[in-house]
Simulated scan of single mutants.
Amino acid sequence: MIYKRIVLFCTFSVGLVLATLLVGTLCTLQTYSASATTLDEARSGGVTIAIANEPPWMQLNPDGTPAGLGPERDEAILREVGITKFTGQVMEYGAMIPAIQSKRATLSSSGALFVRPERCQAVIFSNPVSCGGHGFVLPVALAGKVSSFKDVADQSLKIGVCGGCAEQRLAIEAGVKADNILIYPDGTSGMKLLADKRIDVFANDSTTASDLQKRLSDLAVTEFVRVTGTKLSCAAAAFGKDDVELRDAYNEGLRKIIASGTYMKMMKKYGRDESTIGVGEITTEQLCAK
């Protein structure tokens, strides 16, 4: 059934983004036509997965097909419910929810977005697919001096975060000044900011931060630190508000690959065993609750 939906489209400067995440934004209203993607439509026409440029977790193959842990996991889950055609679109994290709302993407890859109450107002999430904490990569000179977002704020350090990610919100809530928060489009770009000394601290989820530090920096001059004072976060696949049938099918496929052992094999293949802690115990409803 086709209908009109009212969506908020906002334009603002980077500084205003950071400030208004807490106090609101000035927005304009725009309408567009949309319709729910049914399971039968997904089975016949396939799905488009929104992915970040974060190899080896998410990427596009030279032929345009999605690859990496997140998309591989998504495909295994969706094949269990009869969906066998997949395409991918690379985009920044902050663009994923608008892409899902406008039907440019059917879902976000399972490891791309953490489930947050504010995001639950805009999209619906599958059951948690991976869980973990947050991590910093910083110069060895700061080792022992920075282990929390409050430490970053108190020492007036510059921190790099991905746009729209949990770390951006945590930095703001801890009191980090807007001018000290730099947004990077992907992990590789963020690590370059650190190498170029444009930021003092690189922030991401703990597993990603640890992996990037090992792959992209000189281990003699940087250190990985697990962030203290934050709750466990869980990532899941996001769908349009009306795609309940498709989301429920995804949950069924997830249940099946967990039961068969396929899920754990994939996590071990990419060295993300620790990201399974909390999966099957923490619910999406709990994560969406304010």
Rank of each mutant, 00 (worst) to 15 (best):
residue 86 F to G: 11
residue 82 G to Q: 12
residue 109 S to Y: 06
residue 218 D to A: 12
residue 38 T to N: 06
residue 171 A to S: 13
residue 266 M to L: 02
residue 168 Q to V: 14
residue 134 H to N: 08
residue 191 M to N: 03
residue 194 L to F: 01
residue 157 L to V: 09
residue 140 V to W: 02
residue 161 V to Y: 01
residue 28 T to H: 07
residue 78 L to Y: 08
residue 250 Y to H: 07
residue 176 V to M: 08
residue 245 E to L: 15
residue 250 Y to V: 05
residue 201 V to H: 02
residue 186 D to E: 07
residue 234 C to D: 06
residue 233 S to P: 13
residue 98 P to K: 02
residue 215 R to D: 10
residue 93 Y to P: 07
residue 165 C to L: 13
residue 27 C to Y: 08
residue 106 T to G: 06
residue 259 A to E: 05
residue 256 K to G: 12
residue 101 Q to S: 12
residue 188 T to M: 15
residue 263 Y to M: 00
residue 283 T to K: 02
residue 143 A to I: 09
residue 144 G to A: 10
residue 104 R to H: 02
residue 2 I to R: 06
residue 180 N to S: 08
residue 165 C to T: 14
residue 139 P to A: 10
residue 286 Q to C: 07
residue 140 V to D: 00
residue 107 L to M: 07
residue 47 V to S: 03
residue 196 D to N: 14
residue 184 Y to P: 15
residue 189 S to L: 15
residue 108 S to A: 05
residue 116 R to V: 14
residue 113 L to P: 03
residue 142 L to V: 05
residue 251 N to S: 13
residue 268 K to L: 12
residue 164 G to R: 03
residue 270 Y to A: 00
residue 178 A to E: 15
residue 92 E to G: 04
residue 260 S to M: 06
residue 196 D to A: 09
residue 62 P to A: 03
residue 5 R to A: 09
residue 87 T to W: 09
residue 133 G to I: 07
residue 105 A to S: 09
residue 263 Y to D: 01
residue 144 G to Y: 07
residue 122 A to F: 10
residue 86 F to M: 08
residue 5 R to T: 05
residue 86 F to D: 09
residue 97 I to E: 02
residue 135 G to L: 02
residue 268 K to N: 08
residue 87 T to E: 10
residue 68 G to M: 08
residue 258 I to Q: 03
residue 164 G to D: 13
residue 207 T to Q: 01
residue 129 V to A: 12
residue 261 G to T: 01
residue 279 V to S: 00
residue 85 K to S: 06
residue 178 A to C: 14
residue 82 G to W: 13
residue 176 V to K: 13
residue 134 H to D: 10
residue 23 V to P: 07
residue 232 L to Y: 03
residue 151 D to Q: 05
residue 110 S to T: 04
residue 176 V to Y: 11
residue 236 A to D: 07
residue 20 T to E: 15
residue 238 A to L: 03
residue 64 G to Y: 01
residue 173 E to Y: 05
residue 7 V to T: 02
residue 25 T to Y: 14
residue 183 I to F: 14
residue 149 F to G: 15
residue 26 L to A: 09
residue 186 D to T: 05
residue 208 T to M: 14
residue 70 G to V: 02
residue 32 Y to S: 11
residue 165 C to A: 15
residue 277 I to L: 03
residue 159 I to F: 08
residue 176 V to S: 04
residue 97 I to H: 06
residue 288 C to W: 15
residue 45 G to V: 08
residue 246 L to Y: 13
residue 130 S to R: 09
residue 226 R to C: 00
residue 218 D to I: 04
residue 7 V to K: 02
residue 251 N to V: 09
residue 231 K to R: 05
residue 22 L to Q: 08
residue 130 S to G: 11
residue 129 V to W: 06
residue 25 T to K: 04
residue 123 V to E: 06
residue 169 R to N: 15
